[in-house]
């Protein structure tokens, strides 16, 4: 058996057009040896879930800057559960107020990374928490 690759979907839901952060994190994940699937801007939660399933990713990393994290992130978690694909690690990143983070974690987002976080932090988090 060859070394198992960690596969990550970097997802950009919502209506904001800012994907520089998503691209930087995708690149950092690549350099960490992950296989990164990037699907571009303005994906619906349904599309993100369908892609996560077809690509059998270990991690769904959701980047969101539009302020709609409270709605869209839990929706991804719930749809994955509905489709029987709830063994994935789901993390979020973007401009997300500290006050909102507990509710997101409650909803099933494993961790939230806010601006200024070094890229090594989510990488280490993924390595430590990904399904075996």
């Amino acid at each position: 058996m060859t070394e198992r690759k960690i596969r990550v979907l970097v997802a950009k839901p919502g209506l904001d057009g800012h994907d520089r952060g998503a691209k930087v994190i995708a690149r950092a994940f690549r350099d960490a040896g992950f296989e990164v699937i990037y699907t571009g801007l303005r994906q619906t939660p349904e599309q993100i879930v369908a892609v996560s399933i077809q690509e059998d990713v270990d991690v769904v990393a959701i980047s969101l800057l539009s302020g709609a994290h409270g709605t869209l992130m839990p929706k991804v978690v719930n749809l994955l559960r509905e489709k029987g694909a709830d063994d994935k690690l789901i993390i979020g990143g973007g401009v997300i107020p500290d006050d909102d983070i507990p509710a997101l974690k409650e909803a099933g987002i494993a961790e939230i990374f806010t601006p200024g976080t070094p890229t090594s932090v989510p990488i280490e988090f993924i390595k430590a928490n990904v399904r075996q």
Binding site: A26, R30, Y38, T39, E55
Partner: peptide
């Protein structure tokens, strides 16, 4: 690193 960016799906969004 053995890592990769798989970006072909960007052009196939609405097939998902």
């Amino acid at each position: 690193t053995g890592g990769a960016i798989l970006g072909d799906r960007i052009r196939m969004s609405d097939l998902a």
